[in-house]
Design a protein around this nucleic acid. Structure first.
Length: 345
DNA sequence: AAATAAAGCAACCGCCCTGGC
DNA sequence: GGCCAGGGCGGTTGCTTTATT
């Protein structure tokens, strides 16, 4: 079906439209009149729009053609290009809006984006389009996939923890079934990434998601030389997130570079929800039970807004980071990096 | 190296709404 | 007011990739 109405003509040059329609008709051997007649007999505008519209992955040629169409004619009137490509107009629109549009960012989701998704999901539920609008250059489909493939599980676990504060202390480091894919933080030694900055709640509903070794040692530390925040009272933290339903969980925040093996996914999630999406310039709220500790590996560069606000000069990092970590955690770092790996062969 | 299963994500489905005719 | 195409949206499917045994 090729729809041409007056409003469209206002936007499209008559000559070009004429040329385009002729091109479509000649290229696809479509009888436009017959096509229109068929549509008149169909009630659904979806599947029956182009009964034989091709399905499946898009080829580079199709992408190129669709891009060219949008370049020439702008977004909309997908029925025109649908005929040429033997796709449904809906499929064309989806391909453009979700994949080909230059306004879409296809890179990995950042921690802040995850925060926003989690926060808004708790607030509004699965309103993916609304959530996507709160993010920059993300589509609802991206957000939805992000949630379904990653965040929902973490969120479910955290909710479970909230409900049963004295639940079992499952440790994902152990108990992997054959073939199960571990989180990226538990990759084999050869591909394991360098330790990453995490904030770990050592109290509150996520506390038991921190491995015992890390939790015990770090929560005992108060003012460690080289702490990112030498004055814990000045540390900005956002209000307790919705993950704490009663808003009452007293939590202490410890920030440190840890080997990934020490941090379970849920703990990492807990760290994410501690980070404010948009740090408020207003005075930091009081946290009576705050404990703070931060360490930096040599050469560390941070984009942490809270940190930069407090230390605009970006103090020199610690030199003996590994040694300090070993001292705090009480575990040999080489061993730590090998944690979670089983040598069965 | 093969088998396995989870993760990731593009694409589709179906329902609904809107605006033009 | 009814019909229709276009478009928005949330749910689901199925294929590919990847980590692990």
């Amino acid at each position: 079906m090729v729809l041409i109405n007056n409003s469209h003509l206002n936007l499209l040059d008559d000559m070009e439209l004429s040329h385009l329609v002729n091109l479509i008709a000649s290229n696809s051997n479509v009888d436009l009149n017959q096509d229109a007649d068929e549509d008149q007999n169909n009630n659904s505008s979806d599947e029956h729009e182009r009964p034989n519209g091709r399905k499946g992955p898009w080829s580079p040629e199709e992408d190129s053609c669709l891009k060219d169409f949008v370049t020439r004619n702008g977004v909309g009137r997908w029925g025109l290009i649908a005929g040429e490509l033997d796709r449904t107009s809906k499929s064309c629109r989806l391909r453009w809006c979700n994949q080909l549009s230059p306004d879409i960012y296809h890179g990995p989701f950042t921690r802040k984006e995850d925060e926003i998704i989690i926060s808004m999901y708790e607030e509004r539920g699965s309103k993916w389009s609304q959530i996507a609008k709160a993010l920059e250059r993300r589509t609802d489909n991206q957000v939805k996939n992000r949630w379904n493939s990653n965040l929902s599980k973490v969120h479910r676990r955290s909710q479970k923890k909230v409900k049963s504060a004295k639940g079992s202390r499952a440790n994902p480091i152990r108990g992997n079934s054959k073939g199960s894919r571990r989180p990226a933080s538990f990759k084999s030694a050869s591909t394991r990434p360098a330790p990453t900055l995490v904030s770990i709640s050592t109290a509150g509903p996520f506390a038991d998601q921190v491995s015992p070794a890390a939790s015990l040692k770090i929560s005992e530390a108060r003012q460690f030389p080289g702490s990112r925040y030498r004055d814990p009272a000045s540390l900005y933290l956002p209000p307790a997130p919705a993950a704490y339903p009663d808003n009452s969980a007293p939590f202490a925040c410890v920030e440190a570079y840890l080997p990934p093996a020490f941090v379970t996914p849920a703990a990492h999630f807990a760290s994410q929800v501690h980070q404010p999406a948009n740090p408020s310039p207003s005075p930091a709220p009081a946290f009576n039970h705050l404990t703070s500790l931060s360490l930096f590996p040599p050469g560390h560069e941070t984009d942490d807004v809270n940190y930069l606000n407090q230390f605009p000069d970006h103090p020199a990092p610690l030199e003996n980071w590994t040694g300090l970590m070993e001292e705090i955690i009480g575990v040999d770092m080489e061993q730590a990096n090998g944690a979670g790996r089983k040598h069965t062969k």
